[in-house]
Amino acid sequence: MIAGLAGGGRGTAARRRPLPKAQLEKVGIGVTGACVVLVIVLVATLIVMVCGQGLATFTVDGVDPWAFLTGTVWNPHASAADGQPLMGALPMIFGSFAVTLLSCAIALPVALCLAIFMVELAPEIGRTYFQPVVELLVGIPSVVYGLVGLEVVVTWTRSWAGGTGYGIFSASIVLAVMILPTITSLTVDALAAVPDAWRNGSYALGCTKWQTIRSVVVRSAIPGILTALVLGMARAFGEALAVQMVIGNAAQIPASLFELAATLTSILTLGIGNEASGTVYANALWSLALVLLVMSLAFILIVHLIGKKEEVTDG
């Protein structure tokens, strides 16, 4: 994302301007350079701030980082017998990973089938009907997904699984629907980028349409599909509002998918408004944000690595 912004805005100099060319050149470099610096400063500030505040838990409040990552009791207002605050983030880390993996496991096969239909089987219908629908779905605010999830998914889950209906299962369903359009549209791009020459090469070897789709089209598009998946995961991992509305927000490792649970984001958004900054609790929340930031950077890094690998095999 940073690279994209930095690269944009080149070549804006138009002809027939009153300024001489050389001067225009300088103005262009100045404006684009300023934007680049601005973005770098923004990102750097963000990272420094989250790191500074997030690390305060360990440097100022003296919490053991390992205990923070592996502890299962989250009650930063209280202290354990040894005087350490009860600050185990594992339930939230577990919850975040659980909803992310489960929602992707639900969304990916559906997205792949949709994309195959749109690109390989009925491109005409795909372009006229599915494309606009998918684009519309991407743009729906997450609070709407959360509301519908609360009304429909939670109620439905309660009706057959018992309990409250809140939990990792409901959250994963809602997230799966939310990330489906993202994964689908990126998978469509990946399949469409496979050259027709490869399809013809496969047909010429006597392969059927399905053999061609499976062994040539989908196979060649795997790096693109993985990128789609990771971006979907990043979105699921970072989503706060919709998840918070349907997961129950109890900081515990649930015994089943249908018990109350919590994610990093849901605990963070619920807690942050009620705390004065600098308190032990506020610092603990910043530490959760730090975990989120590190994970998001990891997702972006994975996408870049996939892209690199793709370039190497293409070369």
Binding site: P195, A197, W198, N200, G201, S202, Y203, A204, L205, G206, C207, T208, V216, R219, S220, T313, D314
Partner: peptide
């Protein structure tokens, strides 16, 4: 059966088309 036919009548195209394999 075109698929069977194409197993005994092979084709090579203008642009080389190796698969990503």
């Amino acid at each position: 059966n075109v698929y069977e036919l194409r197993t005994s009548i092979g084709m090579v195209f203008q642009q080389p088309t190796p698969f990503r394999l």
